[in-house]
Design a protein around this nucleic acid. Sequence first.
DNA 1: GGGCAATGATTACAACTGTAATCAATAAGG
DNA 2: CCTTATTGATTACAGTTGTAATCATTGCCC
Lengths: 121, 121
Amino acid sequence: MERIAEGEYAVMEVLWDESPLTAAEVAERVPADRGWSLPTVKTMLSRLLAKGALAHAQDGRRYLYRPAIARADYVAEESGRLIDRMFGGRLTPLVAQLAARDRLTPADIEEIEALLKELKS
Amino acid sequence: MERIAEGEYAVMEVLWDESPLTAAEVAERVPADRGWSLPTVKTMLSRLLAKGALAHAQDGRRYLYRPAIARADYVAEESGRLIDRMFGGRLTPLVAQLAARDRLTPADIEEIEALLKELKS
DNA sequence: GGGCAATGATTACAACTGTAATCAATAAGG
DNA sequence: CCTTATTGATTACAGTTGTAATCATTGCCC
């Protein structure tokens, strides 16, 4: 599974959220702040197809696109990569890091504690 | 602060670990599996200087390089970026994700619980 | 002191990325 | 039917990245 670039990821998000879609439908759903033209979206779709991240099925004279990789798999790989690179593969330093930067609210803390308790049982 | 590329990051790691260093010393310390030649390392150093991620001080006819940005700042920015992109800015889904992928050992869970308890006090 | 080794600077070049324009085929509407 | 709007495919082009080679300068060893 080849690496998905930042811009391409925006397209994947659209299709993970709803699929299958035509190229035009994907273009409609890409966040407006990207400011992409339809040709740009089509380029992304082609590259994602080439990378094997998407699959397409003929539908009349156009294609319907759908993800070929699961969002969860991709997310797991990417977050694993970052944690390996920056935190030696351990999650605790990440949590500590975020906490130190005030990226953790008390509500977050409660939530994670509940989750961990769940995991232990 | 411009974006630091993956390869450049390996150079930053070396200098975050020990600095200041000459170009040759950095080259020695870069992980061997990169297989980089000295010229390659020098290119990285130049680009990092241009990006403002490194600073250098003349030392005779060569330079001593040192980081110009703190590792903690960089790590915070990158991990924040990933969490924003993939988890809507929330850490809990990341923890859940990792747990689901068996990337959390019981020891990790204990450790994080201890950390969270600490945070609440 | 003259050639060599070290060092930074400049240049190179292909792959990937962001961002399209253009082309070719074709279905749909008048 | 003929034109036009859709749609995928091909091509484009600049910026970034990975990976260097080459060049120019300059201390240092013999």
